[in-house]
Amino acid sequence: MTLAKDTMPAHEAQAVTAPAEPKAAPNAAPNRDTRTPRHVPLVEQTRDGLVESVHYGSLIATGPGGETLITAGDPDAAFYPRSSLKPLQAVALVRAGLELPEDLLALTAASHSGAAMHRDGARRILALHGLTETALENSTDLPYGTIEREDWLRNGGTPTQLAQNCSGKHASMAAVCVINGWPVAGYLHPEHPLQLLVRDTITELTGEEAAAVSTDGCGTPLFAHTLHGMARAYGRLASAAAASEEGRVANAMRRYPEMVAGEGRDVTALMRAVPGLLAKDGFEGLQLIGLPDGTGIAVKISDGGDRARLPVTVRVLEALGLDDGALDALQSPPVLGGGKPVGVLRASNFLQTTFQSANHD
């Protein structure tokens, strides 16, 4: 089974001024310099027995109590979580009064493929709050999904804000401004009441203050956190009570995974394969997972190579006991030579290395 990889289109990030006096958190992200994080080999591609390429990265799995279960590389280095922040942003919107059907709440946390159901969903969110597409302030783009993009272009489509993969989130951000009487225009400014709420919510859920602030590809303020903090946040979302803001977002994503990504996307397949699993990807090789017992997993591939996300994620899930065959369909396709399998893309022995290092210490 070949699955399309879930990445966000690359855009140049533009620095913005960090909000003054950020809200305190139980743990602060370490005060790091700008050195390259201490990543380790996580994935290798072989061709007829030789290692052809290697992807480095870092990861962590945290338990229900926040304890570290598995770690590799440098999970306490600050990084930009990109679109893996969307479920946390969605929690902030629900706390600000956003009330939507579950399919549209899932779309709020989405990096969608740009199918008709996604574009129509964003329109529905806007219309429910008396808004039109003119309220959107995200960047324009073609649909992200390959099939969706080709169909869009065949019918004369051009880059639009609705087709851009973050349009559900932006429609809900504009809607929350209407709900609270905040200005809709300028809702992306880092000092807008909406973005201050989002920042504080992310700080709370990760348990750490942002180490840096920039701008994501769609124009939203982007906060740097650690893999450790992000894993904690996803464990919290996935295990939250159904009636809580966190639980409402998580349940919507799990019930409508096709709205979070799209048909044929690996994040959709992952949530369908493992009941109760919460999954979201992000550009530059990010994969976040939350399990119903409160376990959180965060993976970062250092070179941004998207193909390396799933082999690492599957290996970690199997190490945590999810090895009943549900993950078999998510294994990477074989490396081909002349149309025949001659190699594999596989997780390296980072688990063995991690356990050996722990025993040595």
Rank of each mutant, 00 (worst) to 15 (best):
V274N: 04
G217D: 05
M259P: 08
A273L: 10
M230G: 00
R236Y: 02
T203K: 10
S302M: 13
I289W: 09
S244L: 05
S214Q: 08
H189G: 03
L197T: 03
A212F: 11
I202M: 11
R248E: 11
A185V: 02
A298I: 00
E209N: 12
A261I: 11
H192R: 05
R248V: 02
L277E: 14
A240C: 01
K280F: 06
R309G: 12
E208R: 13
E245R: 00
V274D: 04
V249E: 11
L286D: 04
Q195P: 02
H189K: 06
L188C: 01
G219I: 09
A212K: 15
G219R: 15
T203I: 07
H192I: 00
R254Y: 00
L196N: 01
E209I: 14
V260H: 12
G247K: 03
G235E: 04
R199L: 03
R248P: 07
E258M: 09
P193A: 04
D216R: 15
P257C: 11
F223M: 07
G207H: 12
R255T: 14
G229W: 00
D200E: 05
H225I: 03
E246C: 07
L227M: 04
L277V: 12
S244V: 01
T226C: 03
D306R: 15
A250L: 08
